[in-house]
Every structure is written in C-alpha cells, then in structure tokens.
C-alpha cells in the first residue's frame, strides 16, 4: 500500500507544480472589472474545446484570451468592443450566442417557422371539429315509416 500512496503524493505534487507553472503573474483588477470580464468571458467560446466558454475552459489559449479580455476592458473597451475584437479574429464562431443576421435567420426563426407550419397543419386537418363526423341529417317521415317496418314495435312510433 505504501508505494502506491507515495506515487499518489508524487503525482499530486507534480500536478500542482505544472499548474502553478502555467499561471503567470497576473495583475490584479478591480472587482467591478473582474465581474464585467467574467460576463464577457462567458459569452466567448473557447476555440480549443468548443463547447465551453473561455471562462469555463482550462485550455491555455482560453487563459490567454481571458487575460486579453481583462486588459482590453481595463484599457476602456466596452464589452461589445471586446466581443467585436474577438469576432474579427475568430469569426462569429467565437460567440456563444450567434448574432441575429442574414445567414443566421433560419437558425433563429426556424423553430418559430416550424411551430407555425405545424399549427397551420393542425388547424386545417386535425382540428377537433374537422375530425368529429357530422351528425347525419334527421330522417324524413318517409324514411321513418320504412324503417319502422323492420323494427319491433317499441322502437318505432
């Protein structure tokens, strides 16, 4: 058991070593800027591990992007300007929320369009009224008479 434990301890130590080697000395920012940077970071996709935002990602490139976001905000950029900075370099892909524009029209309006189509189809073909068979018209006196001949007495009148 002991050697295994030692190995674990070594591994742990190695990991903390590399982790601290990767983090560079980062200047401190005000809490306000830090909060703003987090917001911006959450809206930017990590281009290495594509389903995470740069705020959530452990990729080294995401760390550098986070740093850049803070520096740009500190230099007076608005969050919108920071996002634009990233989009000119990485394209719309870098945005977690795709913008509403001509080539994303189908993406944004598609679900609504489908709902509309489905609704129209339902209205025309499946609406309850269309489905219930209409009541047959009342029998004429003549028909009643003919029918009564085939029925036992209590049914006719």
């Amino acid at each position: 058991m002991r050697p295994v434990f030692m190995l674990f301890a070594l591994l742990l130590a190695a990991q903390t070593l590399t982790a601290s080697a990767q983090e560079r000395a980062v200047p401190e920012y005000s809490a306000e800027l830090e909060a703003e940077a987090r917001e911006v970071g959450k809206s930017l996709r990590c281009v290495v591990c594509q389903n995470q935002s740069i705020e959530d990602s452990a990729a080294p490139l995401a760390a550098d992007m986070r740093q850049l976001v803070r520096e740009r905000l500190a230099a007076g950029d608005t969050p919108e300007q920071v996002r634009a900075f990233m989009t000119t370099r990485y394209g719309n892909f870098v945005l977690m929320k795709p913008p509403f524009q001509l080539d994303t029209l189908l993406l944004w309006l598609g679900p609504g369009l489908f709902l509309l189509l489905a609704g129209a189809g339902w209205f025309v073909y499946l609406r309850p009224r269309a489905q219930t068979p209409g009541l047959p018209e009342d029998l004429t006196a003549d028909e009643r008479l003919r029918l009564s001949r085939h029925l036992p007495d209590e049914a006719g009148s």
Partner: peptide, 13 residues
C-alpha cells in the same frame, strides 16, 4: 509566449 500574435491571427491550434 502569451498568445498575443496567435489571437490576432485567429490561431486555434
């Protein structure tokens, strides 16, 4: 070292 040019170039890997 800090990805400045890499980000400017839109490098992902």
């Amino acid at each position: 070292a800090d990805s400045r040019l890499a980000i400017d170039l839109g490098v992902t890997g």
